[in-house]
Design a protein around this nucleic acid. Structure first.
Lengths: 220, 220
DNA sequence: AGGCTAATGTCAGCCACTGACAGATGACAA
DNA sequence: TTGTCATCTGTCAGTGGCTGACATTAGCCT
């Protein structure tokens, strides 16, 4: 029996059953991501994944709603960190600045949390597959808009506005999200998959929003 | 590649075989959209569609790459009109204004073209299903980003820029696209599904981009 | 120990989608 | 008109994602 290593003393002690579930889920995630990163998404069947972990296909679908779902297990982690970072911004800060700083600042904690689960390198290889696989890219974009909706509500609450009455929260977040995706795409397409490179790209892209919306690009 | 639009095309007369194909395709589209609009996307099987048209399932998949594909048949029409409208904008016009006017101005011609194929009302009901069905929404968003990529290239060309070197074209289009999607969503969620309502929503949303990105929302 | 409950495996089946092969049908030239 | 040919279509078999139903196993608790 391989133990997990880190001494986790949660208040309600996990219990054997709960720990077994955790191990199965993690094993499925790791096996799935490893296979997807090497063979590609369509080249990996659910049976491949379950065979690697030695569980039945049915069990896989009890842990994950779909084959897509397991590919975004790590991404879900990252999203929750971004949401927390936005919530943690000081009141009075300008909305756009809230988003900008939250995204840039959360990268380090995100990477830390990801490494608890899978090697960072694996996560990045999977991300490339997501960007280059139509079905996964589509799912990624849908997830992104759901995140945007959540962020818009948070921003609206900060500003004391009604999201459905005032369009600015959703518009700001949508524009911001679009820019972030441009950065993500450049990142996944480029050579440098480091965190620093990602931060630089996002900074650059965000700095160009103003000029891009300006009347005349020549004066830039 | 079928060019449906302008009348300056079909010099070689269709031929019986070609006309039959056209009829089959149109019948499939109409049957599919009607079923999807009434029973919903997941409630409609490909067999339902092919049964309504009395062709084999195999034939359906020779006309459409997937079940999703048929749901976006009309949307493809609309997209090509937007692209044409952007290409037709006078040189010298500011990039953001190009997108804005192209989208707003093409709505009428789009509706005209759509009605050649299916009732406008049906198209709108299908659009609502797209927005509310996760799988279709995901596909819609992926298609939207592909359209954005095309528009970014056109904008870059207008301005004499290299899309991969200067980030502004993609950023502008991404931000613009995000705002458009907010408008689309409000439109599909609201009561008034008229063209005028859509145009108003888009105008309102676009007018709020500047203020939304501003430092302090209270001064608005 | 024994009962309760939750996790898992097995099985059957639906649906989207595909390759291979065979038959039907316009297109076109002799 | 007829025969050849390319193309469209249907049938069939099979794969893969996904689900419901039911039986079995295994942690939990008294």
């Amino acid at each position: 029996m391989e133990t997990v290593g880190t001494a986790v003393d949660a208040l309600p002690r996990p219990g054997l059953r709960e720990r077994k579930k955790q191990r199965t889920r993690d094993a499925l995630v790791r096996a799935a991501l490893e296979l997807i990163a090497t063979r590609g998404y369509e080249g990996t069947t659910v049976d491949d994944i379950t065979a690697a972990v030695e569980v039945s296909q049915r069990t896989f679908f009890r842990y994950f709603a779909s084959k897509e779902d397991v590919a975004f297990f790590v991404a879900r982690l990252a999203e929750s960190h971004v949401v927390d970072a936005v919530r943690g911004r000081p009141p009075g800060e300008a909305p756009l600045e809230v988003l900008r700083r939250a995204v840039l600042d959360s990268w380090d904690t995100i990477n830390e949390a990801v490494e608890q689960l899978v090697p960072l390198d694996l996560h990045m290889r999977v991300y490339r597959v997501i960007e280059s696989t139509p079905a996964l890219l589509a799912a990624h974009l849908r997830r992104a808009t759901e995140l945007e909706e959540e962020l818009a509500r948070i921003i609206a609450e900060r500003e004391g506005l009604d999201v459905d009455a005032d369009p600015r929260p959703r518009i700001l977040v949508a524009a911001f999200g679009g820019v972030i995706r441009v950065a993500e795409r450049r990142w996944s397409a480029g050579d440098d998959l480091s965190t620093a490179a990602m931060r630089d790209l996002m900074t650059t892209c965000l700095d160009h929003v103003g000029p891009a919306l300006a009347e005349n690009w020549r004066t830039g």
